[in-house]
Simulated scan of single mutants.
Amino acid sequence: MAFADYDPDLTDPDLTAIAPDAATAKILVAGGFGVGKTTLVGTISETVPLRTEELITEASVGVDDMAGVETKTTTTVAMDFGRITLSQALVVYLFGAPGQDRFWFMWDDLSRGALGAVVLADTRRLESCFASVDFFEHRGIPFALGVNCFDGRCEEDPDEIRAALDLSPDVPLVLCDARDKESVKGVLLALLEHVMRGLAAEAAADRQPV
């Protein structure tokens, strides 16, 4: 489903400033094991998402941290992939990165050429998204933090979450439900607005006299 019916700003031609040389843009969805990345991509994709999920077997015992997600039976072993038509001028491709430590070697390849990223967090296991936050901060890739509110509620204060992750004040933090399309749209919009603010700031800096 396209975003056209969500917010009138999405049809603004200025949105193409995000990807001036192409009609497509790439966004990563990252986070710890079992935080809801596959669900988020599947919820928002207008096409049947590509998934590379496999059954969790005894081989993962002692390798993957199952604390807090003991009932999880499958896991992404490569990536999830979905597509969203953002406007007539821009199509966004979503790449969901695997969350287990043993698959982090793939993140550099997946992040190449990315416009930005969504880091999905579970407040019951907030430490599981530390690595994702560090990854994008160190590479200068803009990101938004989506706090996945399991059971439709979040017990933690957003300001406390921001402080615990030592997030920069300009990084968007959005409470969301990865199962709800409108909620996921809100996270992606927050990311795109963050990216556009960054581009505008860079353009303004370039115009400053030397």
Rank of each mutant, 00 (worst) to 15 (best):
S45T: 01
R124C: 08
R124I: 10
S111H: 05
S128P: 02
F33S: 03
A30I: 06
E137I: 08
L94C: 06
G31P: 02
S45V: 01
L90G: 00
G32E: 06
G42E: 00
T39E: 09
T76Q: 04
L28G: 06
V118F: 04
T24V: 15
L120I: 13
E46M: 13
P98F: 08
A131C: 07
P20D: 11
G42C: 04
T71Q: 15
V77G: 06
R124V: 10
E58H: 06
V118P: 07
A19C: 14
V41P: 05
R83Q: 15
L126Y: 05
A89P: 06
L115C: 07
P20Q: 09
R102D: 08
V35F: 00
G32L: 07
G82V: 08
L126C: 03
K37N: 05
L110D: 08
D80F: 02
F81K: 12
S60N: 11
T57K: 02
F95P: 04
D101E: 13
G34N: 01
T76I: 04
V41K: 01
K26T: 12
T47W: 08
Q100A: 12
A131I: 04
A67N: 11
T52N: 10
E58S: 09
R51N: 08
I27K: 08
A89S: 13
T38Q: 00
A114F: 06
L115E: 06
R51K: 14
G31L: 03
T24E: 15
F135A: 08
D122W: 02
G32Y: 02
A97E: 07
T57Y: 01
F95Q: 13
F130K: 09
D65Q: 08
G113T: 03
T123F: 05
P49L: 02
A30E: 10
I18D: 10
E53H: 12
D21H: 14
P98L: 11
A89M: 12
D134C: 05
A19T: 15
S128Y: 03
E54D: 13
V92G: 08
M79I: 12
S132C: 06
S45H: 03
A25N: 10
G99L: 04
